[in-house]
Write a protein that binds this DNA or RNA. Structure first.
Lengths: 193, 193
DNA sequence: ACAGAAGTATAGCGATCGTTGTACTTTCCC
DNA sequence: GGGAAAGTACAACGATCGCTATACTTCTGT
C-alpha cells in the first residue's frame, strides 16, 4: 500500500496527474486544458487517467481539495508558524504575497476555478467559498490571538486586501498591488491595539 | 444610417448580439457560452452573426470595449458626477458597490475575461490591464482634486479594495465584502487630509 | 416600385472535446 | 515465479465546438 497515493504500488500515476493538473489548470485555465494535454504532461495514458478519475470534473474537484489539504497556500503556511508572534504572522502573510510577486502569477487558483465554473459545477463554487471563509477565519483567529480589539473585522479587512492583490495580479503582474496590500495591511495590523 | 449601430438600417441585429453577449458572457462565462446559445438569445441567425463579427473572439473584444466605452461600470459613473464634492464621489463609488450587492453578482467582467483568456488571447489581457489602470487613475485624479496629500497612493489603495470586494463576490455573494470595503475606503478617504 | 442590403433557416464542414473499448506489457507482493 | 494490479498504446465513439454554404425572405431608401 502506497502511503502517499492510497493506491497499491505502481508508478504513482495518480500523483503525476494531480501534479499536471495543478500546473496546467492554474497556468492555462481549466476549460483550456484538455485531457490529451493533461495526460501528455503527466506521462500517463488516457486509459490510466480514467482508472483514477471518473471524469475531468472529478479531477477538478480533487485538484481544489488537494490545494486545500496538502498544498496549503504560502500565505496560510505563515499563519501556522510558531516562531513568530501572532501580529508578525499576519504581516508575514502579506510579505510572502509581495515576495511571491514573480512571474508567472495568475491570481488565486480557487477564485479562478470559481470564475471558470460559472453556472455549472456548483460544487466547485461551494469548495471555493469554504476555502475563502476558512482563510478569513484563520486571519481573524490570529488577530484575536494577538489581542486585537475587533479581530473579526480585521480578519475580513485583511482577507479583502489579500483578495484584491491576488486578483489584480491576474491582469497586471507587477508587484505594485502586493506592495500596496502589504503596506496597508501593516498599518491596519499595527493600528488595531 | 443608424447612429447607434453604424449599420444601414435593418432591425439592429448587432445591438442584440452585443446585448446577449453582455448577458451571457458575464453570467455563464465566455468559454461556456457557445455561438448557438448566443444567437438564440439574440434572436439572430448564425449567418447574420458572422456578418457582423468575423469570429467569436472578435465579439469578446467588442464586448469588453463596449463595457469600457458605452456602458461604463456603475462605479465609474459616480466619479463623473458634478453634483458631489470629489471626496464624496470617491465614497459614492463604494456606496454603489454596496448597494449593487444584490444577486446575481459575479465579479468584474473584465477580470473574469482575463481569467478565462489565460494563455491565449493576450489582447484581452491587455484590454483588461488598460481598464484597471484607467480606473485606478480616475480614483487617483479624484483624490488629487480633493486635495489629498498622496493621491496616487490613495488611488491604488481604493482600487485594491474595490478589486477585492468584487472578486470576493464571485464565490460569496453576501454584501459583506462590499460593506467592509465601503467602511475601510471611507476611513482612508476621510483620513487622508 | 424596385434594387440592394439585411436578416432567416437549415444543413453540414472539419476539428476537438470528454470518454470508452480492445489488446498488450510492466511491476510488485507473496 | 506466478498472478493480480497498474500502466500502455491506439483507435474510435458521440457530442459539441466555431464556422461556412446554399437558398430564400424581408425591409428600406430613393
Amino acid at each position: 500500500m502506497n502511503a502517499t497515493t492510497g493506491t497499491r504500488g505502481g508508478r504513482g500515476a495518480r500523483e503525476r496527474i494531480l501534479a499536471a493538473a495543478a500546473e496546467l489548470f492554474y497556468a492555462d485555465g481549466i476549460h483550456a486544458t484538455g485531457i490529451a494535454r493533461l495526460t501528455d504532461v503527466a506521462h500517463v495514458s488516457t486509459r490510466t487517467f480514467y482508472q483514477h478519475f471518473p471524469s475531468k470534473n472529478a479531477l477538478v474537484a480533487a485538484y481544489l481539495e488537494r490545494f486545500d489539504a496538502e498544498t496549503p497556500m504560502p500565505a496560510e503556511q505563515e499563519l501556522t508558524r510558531t516562531d513568530l508572534a501572532p501580529r508578525e504572522r499576519l504581516i508575514q502573510v502579506f510579505a510572502t504575497l509581495k515576495t511571491r510577486g514573480r512571474r508567472p502569477v495568475r491570481g488565486c487558483p480557487f477564485h479562478n476555478a470559481a470564475v471558470e465554473a460559472a453556472g455549472e459545477m456548483s460544487e466547485i463554487a461551494e469548495t471555493v467559498a469554504r476555502h475563502k471563509d476558512a482563510f478569513r477565519q484563520r486571519l481573524a483567529d490570529t488577530a484575536a490571538e494577538a489581542g486585537i480589539a475587533d479581530a473579526e473585522l480585521l480578519g475580513r479587512r485583511l482577507a479583502l486586501l489579500y483578495e484584491g492583490a491576488t486578483a489584480l495580479s491576474t491582469s497586471r503582474n507587477d508587484g505594485q498591488a502586493a506592495a500596496d496590500a502589504y503596506d496597508l495591511a501593516k498599518e491596519l495590523i499595527e493600528g488595531g491595539r
